[in-house]
Amino acid sequence: MSSRFRKLSHTIWHCQYHIVWVPKYRFRILRGAVKSAVESGIQSICGYSGCEVVELNVQPDHVHLVVLVPPKKSISELLGRLKGQISMKIFQQFRELRKKPYWGNHFWAKGYCVDTVGLDADMIRRYVRYQEEKERQLEQLQLVD
């Protein structure tokens, strides 16, 4: 078993996701102290949620997050928590943003993009072929007995 896998009581897993989301109206606001607040918020919320940040890149108008998420966690729940709690933190910390009429109470745009970061397809095919070969060898051994 490779170290890339994580363990739960009855599960061995490697669920890695690439998630991208943007501020409302895709404003280029994720700079300086706002950027730092977003980064620290993502790190702490993911850690608290039992998720592991693999890569994090906060650009002025979007966030890229590659994260390991246990199979018992929902991606929509994680993103709801990230976007909701970070939004509240940003509006508390940077009160001047709340005064802008276009924000309302929403810092982030609705929705997000998520993609799985999985094993290489060739690697999976080789693994399946290997398992099939191992199964045949076992069957032949059982016939000999």
Rank of each mutant, 00 (worst) to 15 (best):
L8F: 07
L8K: 15
S9V: 06
S9Y: 05
H10N: 14
H10V: 08
T11D: 06
T11L: 06
I12D: 11
I12F: 11
H14I: 04
H18T: 06
V20C: 06
V22H: 02
V22T: 08
P23I: 02
P23Y: 00
P23R: 00
Y25Q: 06
R26C: 07
F27A: 04
R28F: 09
L30T: 01
L30Y: 00
L30V: 02
R31I: 10
R31V: 11
G32S: 03
E39Y: 01
E39T: 05
S40D: 13
G41I: 02
I42K: 01
Q43R: 15
S44G: 07
I45D: 08
C46V: 04
G47L: 12
S49M: 15
C51T: 02
E52H: 11
V53D: 02
V53I: 03
V54M: 10
E55Q: 13
L56I: 13
V58A: 09
Q59E: 15
P60D: 12
H62C: 09
V63W: 13
L65W: 03
L65R: 05
L65K: 05
V66I: 15
V66N: 09
V67E: 03
L68I: 05
V69E: 04
V69P: 04
P70S: 11
P70G: 11
P71D: 06
P71E: 04
P71K: 01
K73A: 05
I75W: 04
I75T: 06
S76R: 05
G80V: 01
R81D: 15
R81N: 14
L82P: 04
Q85I: 07
Q85K: 14
I90G: 10
I90P: 11
F91Q: 09
Q92F: 07
Q92K: 13
F94Q: 10
R95Y: 10
R95D: 13
R95V: 11
L97F: 06
K99N: 01
K100C: 09
P101A: 05
Y102R: 12
Y102G: 13
G104S: 12
G104W: 13
F107Y: 06
A109V: 09
K110W: 12
G111P: 11
G111K: 12
V114W: 11
V114R: 15
V117L: 13
V117R: 02
V117K: 05
G118Q: 12
L119P: 00
A121F: 00
D122P: 04
I124H: 00
I124W: 00
V128Q: 02
Q131I: 10
Q131K: 15
E132F: 06
K134F: 07
E135C: 10
E135R: 15
R136N: 10
E139Q: 15
E139C: 09
Q140F: 04
L141R: 13
